[in-house]
Amino acid sequence: MGRIWNLVSTEARIELRERFALAGILLYVLSSSFIVFSIWRQLPAREWGLTFWVIFLFSSLMAVLKTFGRESEGRYFYYYTLYHPLELFAAKVLYNAVLLIFIFFSLWFVLFVMAGNHMVRGWWFLVTGLIASVGLSILLTLISSIAIKTQQNASMTAILALPLMIPILINLLRLTSYSLGTTPDQNPWNEVTLLASIVSLVTAMSLWLFPYLWRS
């Protein structure tokens, strides 16, 4: 655990050294919600939820894109000899999850300021966001570890990850409409169970496959 923490803090230090990196993500969130808002003009509850997840999806893709691109190859070789791949994976996932949670809260704040509050069950939305951040960060970390090995890293991450994100996204939208009160459905536990099982499926597969994919 200490070793993983070590990696995460190294990661964070590298990221924070380039001050524009975090600010860049914030700017991305801000400007894309601005664009969406200037197209829609006003966001009713349902559209609020849809807009939220669309922006979140693309911002998270953007943020995770450089997970493995940041360090040089020599550094990875060094990591490889020093750490177990799963330790590296856990560190990356943790770091990305924090990043996604950061995006989640800043996006929520931005849309709250721009389009007002439509939340009926805010706690549920928080839970949704946390599950989404963890699930997507695992999925995206695995996919970007595949994509980094190809020539077109950025576009490949999007191509590989987007269709795989859809099952998660569908459940997120359902849970969001529950927390926005736009669905008559009174029992979100079905969706939560499904979402949790998809996320755990993704987790199990990633833990199994990452050491194999990472070896090179």
Binding site: I146, P167, L201, V202, M205, L209, L213, R215, S216
Partner: peptide, 20 residues
């Protein structure tokens, strides 16, 4: 490399296909 990455992605995708 191609074989390894696509094998990994293939298994991952197939497992995710089941809930889908």
């Amino acid at each position: 490399q191609k074989a390894r990455l696509s094998a990994g992605y293939n298994m991952f995708a197939f497992v995710l296909l089941i809930p889908l």
